[in-house]
Simulated assay, not measured.
Amino acid sequence: MAKRSKSRKRRRAPESTIVFFQPLDNLLSRPCHLQVRVYNRVAQRLASDRRKHKDGSWRAAERIPQYEAYLDAINASWISMRQQCRTNPDFFEWPSTKAWIGDGKFSAAGMDTEGVLSLFGYSVSGELGLSPNERHHILDVVFQAEIPPFASWERLLEWDGPASALRLRKMANCLASFARNGKRRHEAHMAAPVAKWTSDLQHLRLRYYDQLFSFDWPEI
């Protein structure tokens, strides 16, 4: 009687194994906006796994330290480059700066195109179509991350350190300024962007300001 061949199941790689977007050495040699793009994606996965871990996922718990270590390495590199930028103003100029800053035109899609928020991917443009949760995640990342040396040392100082009062005030003032300027235009297409900036400003207030800080909150 012929022996039955046992079917072998194909082994799957453990779900806790992380395949990062790029090796760190390769990533950290690339332009600023590309580094930030990867940073955002890893931070998003970290936030998702932290939620899953609270719900009891042990696989998510295994991935969390790996994501944290990856982000810490990027932050450490940005800190090092900031120090070199501080001591030598001509040290660092990202070659792709003009590509992500935009044309500077004052429009719904362009009012928030310059600076740190745009560098990290924040936008209220209908073309990008970021959801409230996506915009809020980006704002959370900006509040907690090191800021890479994308501009002059003087501009970097305006953003202070992660999770600081100055960082939150700078972010809040940016969003409030966008909303105020949008309101002054009295154009129908500005209603949606103004509503998004107002909502995002409220997110920062409820999540961080009301619990931790007491500086004057900007009015719209």
Rank of each mutant, 00 (worst) to 15 (best):
residue 186 H to F: 05
residue 180 R to M: 06
residue 182 G to V: 11
residue 184 R to S: 12
residue 166 L to N: 07
residue 164 S to P: 06
residue 176 A to E: 06
residue 188 A to P: 05
residue 165 A to C: 10
residue 185 R to L: 14
residue 181 N to M: 11
residue 159 W to V: 04
residue 167 R to L: 02
residue 157 L to P: 02
residue 167 R to V: 01
residue 182 G to N: 11
residue 177 S to V: 08
residue 154 E to I: 02
residue 188 A to W: 07
residue 155 R to C: 13
residue 178 F to T: 07
residue 167 R to W: 01
residue 163 A to R: 13
residue 169 R to D: 11
residue 181 N to H: 14
residue 179 A to Q: 10
residue 188 A to V: 10
residue 157 L to F: 06
residue 177 S to W: 03
residue 184 R to Y: 02
residue 168 L to R: 03
residue 183 K to H: 11
residue 189 H to E: 15
residue 170 K to D: 04
residue 187 E to T: 07
residue 163 A to K: 07
residue 159 W to Q: 08
residue 162 P to D: 14
residue 157 L to G: 13
residue 164 S to L: 07
residue 178 F to C: 15
residue 174 C to H: 04
residue 161 G to A: 13
residue 160 D to N: 09
residue 181 N to D: 12
residue 159 W to G: 03
residue 165 A to Y: 03
residue 175 L to F: 01
residue 169 R to E: 15
residue 162 P to Q: 13
residue 157 L to C: 14
residue 166 L to F: 07
residue 160 D to I: 02
residue 164 S to I: 04
residue 189 H to V: 09
residue 155 R to Q: 15
residue 155 R to G: 06
residue 184 R to F: 03
residue 184 R to V: 05
residue 158 E to S: 07
residue 169 R to Y: 04
residue 178 F to Q: 04
residue 169 R to P: 04
residue 160 D to Q: 15
residue 171 M to R: 00
residue 164 S to V: 03
residue 172 A to L: 01
residue 179 A to F: 10
residue 164 S to H: 03
residue 157 L to S: 06
residue 187 E to C: 12
residue 176 A to F: 04
residue 163 A to V: 11
residue 164 S to R: 04
residue 173 N to Y: 08
residue 163 A to D: 14
residue 174 C to P: 03
residue 189 H to M: 13
residue 165 A to L: 06
residue 168 L to Y: 05
residue 157 L to M: 14
residue 188 A to L: 12
residue 184 R to M: 06
residue 182 G to F: 03
residue 162 P to Y: 13
residue 162 P to F: 11
residue 170 K to V: 02
residue 166 L to V: 09
residue 159 W to S: 12
residue 168 L to I: 10
residue 187 E to P: 01
residue 177 S to P: 02
residue 154 E to G: 03
residue 183 K to R: 13
residue 172 A to H: 00
residue 161 G to Q: 15
residue 166 L to D: 10
residue 176 A to K: 01
residue 158 E to D: 12
residue 186 H to T: 02
residue 182 G to Q: 05
residue 155 R to H: 15
residue 171 M to W: 00
residue 179 A to S: 12
residue 174 C to V: 15
residue 170 K to S: 14
residue 179 A to W: 07
residue 158 E to T: 04
residue 159 W to C: 14
residue 157 L to V: 11
residue 171 M to L: 06
residue 171 M to E: 00
residue 157 L to H: 03
residue 186 H to S: 11
residue 187 E to Q: 13
residue 164 S to C: 10
residue 171 M to D: 01
residue 159 W to Y: 06
residue 178 F to K: 01
residue 169 R to F: 05
residue 162 P to V: 09
residue 165 A to N: 05
residue 184 R to I: 05
residue 181 N to R: 08
residue 185 R to Y: 12
residue 159 W to P: 07
residue 158 E to Q: 09
residue 168 L to E: 08
